[in-house]
């Protein structure tokens, strides 16, 4: 059953299943809806399928069955251009994945120039303002190898924002960072959330989830077990497996 779309549903995932070629059942009938401007945080033990779920939302992973629609566009419809859809959905990776052969500014400018074919001057202005926003105005001509992990991740956020996406996906953005750099990345994400960006964040940062999330999802072994407000999620975990998980990490 495909859900009726309202204008405010940015992401609607309906009953998605994912089998890997080796037979692993990574996602089991996962359904979730993200409204415009909402911040969704997905937590769960490693191997729970939360990253896989996130990656299905811009089709870096295809799904075996079910349906996903982004801003009322069915991702798997015949006439859907996945590249166009991906322009709407920015993604930030655990491993940064900056382009090492380009300077910071070029990293941010590449996709708007080559994909959106926007005017070079406008793109550069936009890129500079984004890099200022993430606090890297002094690093524009540096190469990624000359930056710290936190700086690289902030460049990656600016790079995704340069495409003017409506949705931002974060795949464990702070997991590869030294502890003292986690804060600077989370601060950028918080300010994004405040500006009303629709965000789906896979993370182990419980503090961030509690403070910023509108809803928190708990996944384990490919199943979506809990979808609740942070208060109920953290203070009153009803599901026994969530309670057990929280007692282990908190």
């Amino acid at each position: 059953m495909i859900k009726e779309y309202t204008g405010d549903d940015m992401i609607v995932a309906t009953g998605i299943d994912k089998f890997y070629p080796n037979g692993c059942h990574a996602l089991k009938n996962v359904s979730a809806t993200v409204h415009r401007g909402e911040v969704l945080v997905v937590i769960g033990p490693s191997g729970s399928g939360k990253s896989t779920f996130l990656r299905t939302l811009n089709q870096l992973e295809t799904i075996s069955s079910g349906a996903i629609s982004i801003d009322a566009t069915d991702m798997y419809a015949k006439d859907t251009d996945i590249n166009k859809l991906r322009e709407e959905v920015g993604m930030v990776f655990q491993g940064f994945n900056l382009f090492p052969h380009m300077s910071v500014l070029e990293n941010v400018m590449l996709a708007p120039l080559k994909v959106s074919k926007r005017d070079r001057r406008e793109v550069e202005e936009h890129a500079r303002s984004l890099l200022c926003k993430v606090g890297l105005e002094s690093r524009m001509t540096n190469y990624p190898s000359q930056l710290s992990g936190g700086q690289m991740q902030r460049v990656a956020i600016a790079r995704a924002l340069a495409m003017k996406p409506n949705i931002m996906l974060f795949d464990e953005p702070t997991s590869a960072l030294d502890p003292e750099m986690v804060g600077e990345v989370l601060d950028v994400m918080k300010s994004l959330a405040k500006e009303g960006m629709t965000m789906v964040v896979v993370t182990h940062e419980m503090g961030f989830a509690r403070e910023v999330a509108d809803r928190v999802l708990f996944m384990e072994e490919g199943e979506l077990l809990v979808d609740d407000t942070p208060t109920l999620f953290f203070d009153n975990p009803e599901h026994p497996r969530l309670a057990k998980f929280l007692s282990q990490v908190l």
Partner: peptide
Amino acid sequence: PAGQMEAARSLGMNYAQAMIY
């Protein structure tokens, strides 16, 4: 690393653009 291709694709580049750039 596969992440390079993924990052490029996630920005809306098609396969050829991701390869070339």
